[in-house]
């Protein structure tokens, strides 16, 4: 579905991601793990067009997305839940969801998508008129995921959805990822919570200092001595 081929990206002269190649097949859930500053978020930003590529190509279902305007990428079926949620704090939950449905092709389905999101997160329906910035961290994460789901994406990119949340809520987030997968969505997720994430994804890539160092099935990575030592700490 999503093919990232030999992609290099960065900020100004600085290269944060070097010659990365990743593939996500339809229906799969794939994780990207790695230490702080490895370039995980950079990879996500490159896919969704927040930063331009310095090299390589990205294709979504055979269509090159490196050559279309960045704001059109969401229309190819890629939705991105950014790091730190990035809600519009001074707007209500429902207004946040509305902005997620901004692109013209999505608008007709607004009511249907809203219903879908409210079914997935009944809490959001209760809080529909609350200002997003006044909600708890867990609720904000739900809202951020809901906002991304408004565009009825084929693939959902999630950048550290469990960051900064209490252990109970983290459990809920991973439970949620299972449910999203069950809905038939393809998932590409960045996580620090390696042990947990490897339980919900099929495969994972290990990114270190801007380069892909390893890739393999969840079971393989969970079994690898090096990875256990470095990222799981047991």
């Amino acid at each position: 579905m999503l093919v990232i081929d030999d992609v290099t990206a960065g900020y100004g002269d600085f290269t944060a991601l070097r010659n990365a190649s990743i593939e996500v097949k339809a229906g799969e859930a794939v994780a990207v793990i790695g230490p702080n500053g490895a370039g995980k978020s950079t990879l996500m930003r490159a896919i969704s067009g927040m930063i331009p590529l310095k090299g390589g190509t990205i294709t979504m279902e055979g269509q090159s997305i490196s050559s279309i305007p960045a704001h059109k990428i969401v229309e190819t079926g890629i939705a991105h839940v950014p790091e730190n949620r990035r809600l519009f704090a001074r707007m209500s939950v429902e207004e946040n969801l509305r902005v997620g449905c901004y692109a013209k092709p999505f608008r007709a389905a607004f009511d249907k998508r809203l219903e879908f999101v409210y079914e997935l997160f009944p809490r959001m329906k209760e809080r529909r008129n609350q200002l997003a910035g006044t909600m708890s961290g867990g609720e904000q994460q739900m809202c951020a995921i809901g906002r991304a789901l408004m565009s009825d994406p084929k693939i959902l990119l999630m950048d550290e959805p469990s960051a900064g949340l209490a252990p109970v809520i983290v459990q809920q987030v991973f439970e949620l990822i299972r449910r999203i997968r069950a809905e038939g969505l393809t998932v590409l997720i960045v996580e620090q919570n390696v042990q947990q994430v490897l339980k919900v994804v099929d495969r994972a890539y290990l990114l270190e200092a801007g380069t892909i160092r390893h890739s393999g099935s969840s079971a393989e990575l969970l079994g690898s001595e090096d990875i256990r030592k470095a990222y799981i700490g047991v």
Binding site: I73, V74, P82, M91, E95, V99, G100, Y102, R147, S151
Partner: peptide, 23 residues
């Protein structure tokens, strides 16, 4: 929608691309 986007962009410019907004 346009009005919502106008208020949203004043709160977070960078992520508007993710919403399909041509700034």
């Amino acid at each position: 929608y346009m009005g919502a986007a106008i208020r949203a962009i004043s709160q977070d410019r960078e992520i508007m691309i993710l919403m399909g907004v041509d700034a």
